[in-house]
Design a protein around this nucleic acid. Structure first.
Length: 109
DNA sequence: GAATGGCCTG
DNA sequence: CAGGCCATTC
């Protein structure tokens, strides 16, 4: 009876988690990962748009992080380390993994 | 023409 | 995030 009209919050959350693995998912990949969605032109473009927005946010944060590092006097890229207590980590995790549905360890760039 | 990406706005 | 617009690609 619930024939899934469009995309719901759960789909959005799932898409955000997917972003950790694919920043440019093809429409075919999306269709494969969301079998419970009746894809049509609108739905597809909407989800494609989501990832576009995800990327925008992601790059803005990275640029902010980079600028901060530069102003902090960092000259060697190898000195750039992101740990779970880093601000960039907090921001990205909050945006893409609110509620910690995905268990994150730590990441070193 | 439709599908995407980038950029900008609200 | 959604809307709109322009450029690129096919």
């Amino acid at each position: 009876m619930h024939i899934q009209e469009g995309l719901n919050p759960t789909h959005l959350k799932k898409a955000k988690l997917m972003f950790f693995f694919t920043r440019y998912p093809s429409s075919s990949l999306l269709k494969a990962y969301f079998p419970d969605v009746q894809f049509n032109r609108c739905i597809t473009s909407q989800m494609i748009k989501w990832f576009s927005n995800f990327r925008e946010f992601y790059y803005i944060q990275m640029e902010k992080y980079a600028r901060q590092a530069i102003s902090d006097g960092v000259t060697n890229p190898k000195m750039l380390v992101v740990l779970r207590d880093s601000e960039i980590f907090r921001v990205l995790n909050t945006h893409y993994n609110k509620g910690n549905d995905f268990e994150l360890k730590y990441t070193v760039l």
